[in-house]
Design a protein around this nucleic acid. Structure first.
Lengths: 139, 139
DNA sequence: AGAAAACCGAGTGATTTAATCGGGATTGTA
DNA sequence: TACAATCCCGATTAAATCACTCGGTTTTCT
C-alpha cells in the first residue's frame, strides 16, 4: 500500500507551487532544488501534471510553472490519480474496468477492495492544496 | 496504491479457510486449486500467516490448515499487515519509524499521508473474515 | 546572439515481484 | 513398516516496475 516517489514528489512539488501562487512562474530547477529532487525526474512528473491541466507552463527565459487553478480547487486526489493512475487497491476494482470476477471467493473479497478504494478516494479528494499549505497554522 | 498479489491471495485464501472453519484442516493444495493460485506460491504466503498466529497447521497425511481463531476475530488488517508489512503510504509515516523530516514542505505533506494511513488502517481493521463470508446474504 | 527555460522520447541499473525448484520433516493409513 | 500425503523452508529466477539519467529540440527574454 505504498505510493511511488512520483506521487510523493508530485504532491510536494505542487505544494511548493501553491506556496508561491501569484508569485509568477517558478522554474522547475528551483522547485527541484528546494525539495531535493532530481530536476530531470521532476520534469517527468510535471509533464503529465500539465497535460492534466493542473499546472501551466511559461516557456523561455524567466519561464517556469504556475498552478493552473487556485490551491483551493486542486485536490490531492487529482494529483495522485494523474501520476499514479486510478486509485484502486487491486486491478479488478478499477472504475470503468469492472469486468465481473470469475472466481467466487475472489468476488467475496471484492467488497473489501471497493470499500478501501472509495475511502482512499474520499480522503484524497477531501484535501486540497490550500489545506496543505495552511496546515502550518492549525496544529 | 496497489496491494501485491501476496496480499490479495492471502486474503482470498483466508476467506476460503473461513468458509470451511470447523470442517477440519484443509490442505493447501485444495485451497490453491479452488482459488486458481500456484500452490508453491501459496506456501510462501501461509508461512508468515502461521508465524503470525493467524492459522495453525496440521502436518502429515490428512493434514492442512485451519484458522487459528474464529472468523469474527480475524481482521483483514491483520492479514494485510502480516503479508505486506506496516500500512503506510510513504516510508516516513511508518509507525514506530517516525524520524522527523528534514525538508519543510515534506513535512507540509506529511499530514496527508498520516491521515491516509490511519483511514486505511481503520477500514481494514473494521472488516473481519466473518464479515467477508457473510456478505453473500447482505447485498 | 546567447542564455534560460520548458519539452520530450529513449535508455538504464537496481529493486521488487511473483513465482519456481528442490529438497527435508512429519504423520495417517495399508 | 512402507509409503503417500502433507507441511516446512531456503535458494534461485524471469519479468516487471521504479527511479532515475541522457541527449537532444524548441521557445522566449535580454
Amino acid at each position: 500500500m505504498k505510493i511511488t516517489a512520483k506521487g510523493e514528489y508530485g504532491v510536494r512539488a505542487m505544494a511548493t507551487l501553491a506556496l508561491e501562487y501569484r508569485a509568477g512562474p517558478i522554474p522547475l530547477r528551483e522547485i527541484a532544488r528546494r525539495e531535493g529532487i532530481s530536476h530531470q525526474f521532476l520534469e517527468q512528473i510535471f509533464l503529465p501534471l500539465r497535460r492534466a491541466g493542473l499546472i501551466t507552463s511559461v516557456r523561455g527565459a524567466k519561464g517556469g510553472y504556475v498552478l493552473a487553478k487556485a490551491p483551493e480547487e486542486i485536490k490531492i486526489g487529482d494529483i495522485v490519480r494523474t501520476l499514479e493512475g486510478p486509485i484502486a487497491p487491486v486491478e479488478c476494482v478499477v472504475e470503468g474496468k469492472e469486468e465481473s470476477c470469475k472466481r467466487s471467493s475472489a468476488c467475496l473479497t471484492r467488497g473489501i477492495w471497493e470499500r478501501l478504494r472509495d475511502t482512499v478516494s474520499a480522503v484524497l479528494d477531501d484535501i486540497t492544496l490550500a489545506d496543505v499549505i495552511t496546515s502550518i497554522d492549525a496544529p
